[in-house]
Structure formats: structure tokens, C-alpha cells
């Protein structure tokens, strides 16, 4: 149930009772999403959506850290190869 799906914000508008709503695209499928919990989100940014609510923005720089760790592990693995005597 704690499923969160990343999507791209296409449009931001004021919904009923002034709540910020937006259109978010999930690889082509577009859904109406409540943006009240990401008040500073901009069009074009990615958000994580759970049961119709954006619960956080996705930080593009941090998104690369998995690959950074993999790269470092590669380098370390190379260093571990014993040198010929």
C-alpha cells in the first residue's frame, strides 16, 4: 500500500477550496494529483505519488548516488586484484 510512483509534473492549478492540484505524467498516463504537500514544486520536476498525493519531490542529483557507489565499488574491486609477483 505504501507504493509510490515517480511522475513528472505537467501542470499546476488551484483545485477546490484552494488546494493546489496538478497533472502528473507517469510514462504517458496522466493523473490528477494533489500537490498540497509539495508546495514549491515546479512544472517539469519529478514527484513521488502515493494514493493521489505527491508526498515528495525527487532530487535528481541524489538520484545518481546509487551509480556513484557502484562506480566506486568497481574501482575498489580492481585494486583488490592481486599484482603478479
Amino acid at each position: 500500500m505504501c507504493l509510490g510512483v515517480p511522475g513528472k509534473v505537467l501542470q499546476i492549478e488551484a483545485g477546490d477550496i484552494g488546494m493546489p492540484m496538478g497533472k502528473v505524467s507517469f510514462g504517458g498516463i496522466t493523473k490528477e494529483v494533489c500537490l498540497a504537500y509539495v508546495p514549491d514544486v515546479q512544472i517539469g520536476e519529478y514527484v513521488l505519488v502515493h494514493v493521489g498525493f505527491a508526498i515528495s519531490k525527487i532530487d535528481e542529483e541524489e538520484a545518481a548516488q546509487v551509480f556513484e557507489m557502484l562506480r566506486q565499488m568497481d574501482e575498489l574491486a580492481e585494486l583488490e586484484i592481486p599484482q603478479p609477483e
Binding site: M1, C2, G4, C34, H50
Partner: peptide, 21 residues
Amino acid sequence: AVGFETTAPANAMAVWQAGQL
């Protein structure tokens, strides 16, 4: 309204909205 902390803000908003309306 079941769920963990992930879902609670959505359910809280539904209750708050029902109150406003």
C-alpha cells in the same frame, strides 16, 4: 482509512477537506 505514515497525510487531507466543506 488504513495505512502507515505514507498514507496518513492523504487520509488526513480527506478529513480536513470534509471539515472545510
